[in-house]
Design a protein around this nucleic acid. Structure first.
Lengths: 138, 138
DNA sequence: TGTTAAATGCGAATCACTTGCAACAAGGAA
DNA sequence: TTCCTTGTTGCAAGTGATTCGCATTTAACA
């Protein structure tokens, strides 16, 4: 587990419990964003079962600390991915099979300024997801 | 009601029922995206009450016909807005008060081609939402 | 006007997610 | 090490959004 994560938890007055470590291990082993249910299922397989409510509580907390990013793909459930050591990026999901692919790009720095001057909002974040058909499904 | 909407319904084998007309009227009178619950409440006020399930069924169907666009702002519920006669656009929502403002811009035409060549997906759509603090809340 | 397929209302179900609470476990202080 | 405080967990129940089954209507058109 990365020191930066442990430091962030400490700074937030959080404890490094066993269940929490297991969740972080699952998250770190996944390149792509996962749902709470998926984390729950993988913990069960990894012989570290825990209550789904605990999974949700931890994902919410990790998000508040800025350690994980939420990814909303209009699936009726949220996905989460660790931020640690990865560039800010976006995703594309296949409308056929649901496959998700990382897009290592974000064209929105300039656009953010435009939005700020246009709306007078202080922009704090954005979500950008693409939908389409993957090579196997098209 | 616009002829183009009626034509689309007809082409999809759909009927132009009274409840459906009422829903479309509500949608057309709203510049900003609304939730199913909001549509349901406004129909009640407008003395054209109908079952919430009917509202959902219609919103889903109108979306499938391409007459309304879904807008996901991570509020735990979807919003919808009529596409008819309006430019493709995005939104920004205040993290404080929830206020939504239209952004009449979309910088993603070029980016879509980049995504397509990078992933080999056939891009069919995207969602782009900004979050921040509005002038009153910042 | 009759026929038929689509649409509606109602109630129950599902699904993702949250909450209350008692038992438990980090982790710093003594 | 032991104690104490406070965050954490499991369990069970609760929400809130959305969907489904089914019997009853209603629009569309022959």
């Amino acid at each position: 587990m990365a020191d930066s994560i442990i430091d962030s938890l400490k700074a937030g007055g959080k404890k490094l419990t066993k269940p929490r470590q297991a969740i972080l291990a699952i998250l770190e082993s996944n390149a792509l964003p996962v749902t709470a249910a998926e984390v729950h299922a993988r913990l069960k397989k990894a012989r570290a079962p825990m209550d789904l409510a605990t999974v949700y509580r931890n994902l919410t907390m990790l998000q508040e600390l800025g350690l994980v990013d939420p990814v909303g793909l209009r699936e009726g459930q949220m996905r989460y991915e660790v931020r640690h050591g990865r560039e800010h990026h976006h995703h594309i999901q296949c409308r056929g099979c649901g496959r998700i692919v990382d897009l290592m790009l974000c064209p929105l720095k300039k656009l953010t300024q435009l939005v700020e001057s246009q709306t007078k909002f202080a922009v704090e974040g954005h979500s950008l997801e693409f939908f389409g058909w993957c090579p196997q499904c098209r």
